[in-house]
């Protein structure tokens, strides 16, 4: 990871950031394996450069971006966000990135576009989880957002964390961060962003529709069928006796910014 300068932004939570070594060692990135330590252990051969991102679909101006060009065109700002995993743990991560809306403006979505699809790279030769007998998910990994969610100022494309370009295990070279949704919405190592008029099927929703919805908004009142979402464990707070379990906040504490997006919707049905 190379150093990355970023200007401060107003989007900074006051909680203490999770230690760098935990943010980069405790990951879900099934392309490298299903264990939390697999992404760090097995992403050494992954090549995040050169990298191209295709932006297409219902846009007036489809484009293929080069990662270095993107980083020049959209200077990074620092966003310190809470990150809540659907599994019941959470972190506070200093990301460097830029609003997704800036990139969407560039390609000019058509009036008919309602959703944005994100797609992770498929490289079995560099991603051991995409190889062999037990492949946990169908590839490529797909995620989606409603266009208004994608345009929300909180939604960013991150290119770095802790002042350095993204480590491979965190989704190098570019990933989605949507802080009021469960972590699995944050599509990593993105190669394609596509606009469409129909709600896409996201990977976890395909695999287990009763457990993972399209919206996946952090919601302490809507439990996962197999575990409660009322509380979460903050990662990196020490051993057994200093473990920090705290109440989960509605929309992960970002209700003020995003609750209006879901006005009138039944969040139990649209989980």
């Amino acid at each position: 990871a190379a150093p990355l300068s970023a200007k401060k932004s107003g989007y900074t939570v006051s909680e203490k950031p999770t230690p760098h070594d935990d943010v980069t060692a405790y990951n879900n990135f099934y392309e490298f394996g299903t264990s939390k330590s697999d992404p760090m252990s097995y992403s050494g051969d992954f090549k995040p450069r050169p990298w191209a991102i295709k932006v297409d679909g219902m846009v007036a101006n489809p484009r293929t971006f080069d990662i270095d060009q993107i980083m020049q065109e959209y200077p990074a700002e620092e966003r310190v966000y809470r990150m809540r995993c659907v599994e019941g743990w959470s972190m506070v991560i200093p990301w460097q990135g830029f609003p997704l809306s800036a990139l969407l403006d560039k390609v000019e979505p058509l009036g008919s576009a309602k959703y944005v699809i994100f797609e992770t790279v498929v490289r079995p030769e560099q991603m051991p989880g995409q190889n062999g007998l037990f492949q946990p998910l169908p590839w490529p990994y797909i995620e989606g957002l409603r266009l208004d969610e994608a345009r929300n100022p909180l939604t960013i494309l991150a290119v770095g964390l802790y002042g350095e370009t993204l480590p491979n295990q965190n989704g190098a070279p570019i990933r989605l961060v949507v802080p009021w949704k469960y972590g699995f919405k944050g599509c990593k190592s993105i190669v394609r962003i596509s606009l469409t008029d129909t709600q896409p099927k996201n990977t976890w929703n395909i695999v287990a529709p009763s457990e993972y919805g399209f919206f996946a908004n952090v919601n302490p009142e809507v439990d996962h069928p197999r575990w409660s979402q009322a509380t979460e464990r903050r990662i990196g707070t020490g051993g057994f006796f200093s473990s920090d379990r705290r109440p989960t906040l509605m929309f992960n504490g970002y209700a003020e910014d995003v609750a209006s997006l879901y006005a009138g919707m039944d969040l139990r049905k649209n989980f």
Binding site: K36, S37, G239, F240, S243
Partner: peptide
């Protein structure tokens, strides 16, 4: 390992 915080980032879950 867990009591001395050497069981990874989420020691309770790991244990």
């Amino acid at each position: 390992l867990g009591a001395t915080d050497s069981l990874g980032a989420n020691p309770v879950k790991a244990f």
